[in-house]
Nucleic acid binder design. Structure first.
Lengths: 147, 147
DNA sequence: TCCTTATTGAATTAAATTATCATTTAGCAT
DNA sequence: ATGCTAAATGATAATTTAATTCAATAAGGA
């Protein structure tokens, strides 16, 4: 993936900030990052970056298909680099731990929707929530049920 | 579903505000509502309701399984009444129109995850994004590609 | 009817995201 | 190389959204 070509072909410019952000996304492939996460890590490569640049760049990267948003609980935004192969996340509602799900069922779903509606699907999001092994063993799910 | 019993059995109280909110959710089954939506509609049944009550009540309803959160684009929160049968949404990224997807593939997924990990799944979210028929015909997806 | 305490509304606070704007700079043309 | 133009940035302010605080209210068991 040549970031410069990809940007310039659509009239955008290659900047050190955008390179730094892409680097951060690459180094954290598969791990959802918040804008603040990205800001902190990219800031080490390019000191002085403003947080607004992160938001702007992530919007752009998502539009270009370079990254995609991940929807977890809490309503906040997370992003990941788009490496083509879909995956999803399983989030522990007790400790917050994330596990990667390589399995993607979007193809099955897309087929169902193609038959049943008139939508052209371009993207999707899916996350599972529950309890991880450690929290189950520690009884965290019972604590939560009691509260 | 007896709201009063459900609340009291866990030490909570039945209030006119909670009844009003449940009524709004019932009347909009299958349609994701924002806290602001709920506030506006419930306010007609129970004048003077504060927005904080909506947030508090929706947290409670979700905890009790009376409602569940819907994750759409934008990172904002939406809620729906939980009528047992899972469904999902297809959101048009051009006009925002929502379509209900009766099909739920959570069972397939849950099985995959049960085999491949140690998580106990308690809930999930899934949404599809793309273009609805009208926007496709109107060329909205091309406009978006150009911008 | 009384009492305890959950609940509420109003106001405040905090946090996340977006908008504004002057300045900088990427990248094409010269 | 140099200059030019528009894109991009950083700083800041403004918006939104959500959470918190607290005194007043009211649900519901005794």
């Amino acid at each position: 993936m040549d970031l410069g070509r990809r940007l310039r072909s659509r009239g955008y410019r290659l900047t050190p900030q955008r390179e730094a952000i892409l680097g951060v996304l690459r180094e954290n492939a598969g791990r959802p990052l918040s804008p603040e996460d990205i800001h902190a890590m990219a800031g080490k490569k390019q000191p002085g970056m403003g947080i607004a640049t992160i938001y702007r760049t992530m919007d752009l990267f998502c539009e270009l298909g370079i990254a995609f948003p991940v929807h977890l609980r809490g309503g906040y935004r997370f992003y990941e680099i788009n490496l083509g192969k879909h995956h999803h996340h399983m989030e522990c509602i007790a400790c917050g731990k994330l596990e990667l799900l390589e399995a993607c069922v979007i193809d099955d779903i897309a087929e169902l929707v193609r038959d049943g509606s008139d939508f052209l699907i371009t993207s999707h999001c899916m996350s599972l929530f529950g309890y991880c092994r450690q929290c189950l063993e520690g009884g965290k799910e019972k604590e939560a049920a009691e509260s």
